[in-house]
Design a protein around this nucleic acid. Structure first.
Lengths: 213, 213
DNA sequence: ACTGGTTTGTAATTGCAGTACAACATACGA
DNA sequence: TCGTATGTTGTACTGCAATTACAAACCAGT
């Protein structure tokens, strides 16, 4: 796993769509060779096999996500605001790279079984959120919940599943606009929930039925 | 895909742990034969191949989930209450069958590429939630959101990711107690959100900071 | 031109899924 | 009891595709 020459790296992306479409199993090394223009022997010279191709592509995606989220998270705002920014950032990268996302979903199992990727996955998706939730409690922008771990996981799930689904459903014309739209829905859910309650600040008891519970 | 004799079906479960551990790729048909005690030739007599083994195991899991959720959903309560029950039901089944869940995560890609399973997946996980959200708006127990589809997807993601992770992390001594605990965290998130706000009914403006937005 | 890394074509080699088939078992009605 | 249909299983075989081996270029830099 030496560092792959840049030219080859860029050619390898030509295999992303193929893998996304058919899964790694359904993709022969020969197909990858043909799609990328890199001969089989050369692929094997640089990479350890088919898995390594996937690993390369996905770790790149995860790095991009981790990077974008990292920027979003390190602003000076309160945690709630940074969480919103992180969601937009994460979805932005995902929608920007639908094929890689599809490949990720399609070979998630393999990905989690490749140790490096499993770590990168956590780092890209889960850890920033977990951190923001605890930050939010500290700076008062988010409320304290009884079981932060489980909640962080659910938030992570909400964002990631929505993003992956959107990415899988179809490449969009304007990924970043879609990312903003989608993240608005998600943040509304995770901040305000689905129950009826007065919005922050206003307080009309007539707003929702209040019998039960 | 005739209907597999009950005895074989039960033996097949012996392969779940193996597949969960190593993935379907890493599991040879011979291994499955050995683990289940069903000879290879017999497996091929009844099933169409390795994928069919996974398909059998997972469709069974999905049926169980769909069944349990179906019961939870069809009570006479309001949608919000039924959604809580559905979450408990879904998590209950998942935690009851950690190996199957691990196999599901591990071979999600394959699963979504097997048409029958893809449908069963939607039916077990996503559709009941989507339905409950619209029901909830109708009966007033949940509020209307701007983009119901995206929100349903996020709710689905929140529940499912939390459940799968819990199932993957390790078999528990008391699955149903864990399911209740976990579902409490999740429902709190999806109903009340993470922002500070007065709980339904009470209304102290001093409760949360109110400057921004 | 020499050396050490790359690149690539062309064979092997290997492992495993899936298939073929024959022998055997079991059930059940005639 | 026999015959037939259906299931069970061992064994050998086929075929595909991943991986490896290797030799012949190629391309710096010195």
């Amino acid at each position: 796993m030496r560092k792959l020459p840049a030219k080859l790296a860029s050619q390898l992306y030509g295999a992303a769509e193929l893998i996304a479409e058919r899964g790694l199993d359904g993709t022969k090394i020969e197909d990858i060779a043909e799609a990328t223009g890199i001969p089989k022997a050369t692929i094997y010279y640089h990479l350890d096999g088919k898995n390594a191709v996937l690993e390369f592509l996905l770790s790149d995606l995860l790095d991009m996500i981790a990077g974008a989220v990292g920027v979003a998270v390190s602003s000076a705002e309160d945690a709630r605001t940074r969480l919103e920014a992180a969601v937009v950032a994460q979805l932005g990268v995902m929608l920007e790279h639908p094929f890689l996302c599809r490949a990720l979903v399609g070979d998630l199992g393999r990905a989690t079984r490749l140790p490096e990727l499993a770590v990168a996955l956590r780092a890209a998706f889960y850890e920033p959120i977990e951190q923001l939730l605890t930050d939010g409690v500290a700076d008062g922008s988010l409320r304290q919940v009884p079981n932060p771990g489980a909640v962080a996981l659910s938030v992570f799930g909400a964002i990631t599943v929505a993003g992956l689904t959107a990415a899988v459903e179809g490449p969009s014309d304007d990924p970043s606009a879609d990312a903003v739209r989608l993240s608005a829905s998600i943040t509304e859910l995770i901040f305000d929930g689905l129950a009826h309650h007065p919005r922050r600040g206003d307080c009309e008891p007539g707003d929702g039925p209040d019998q039960s519970e």
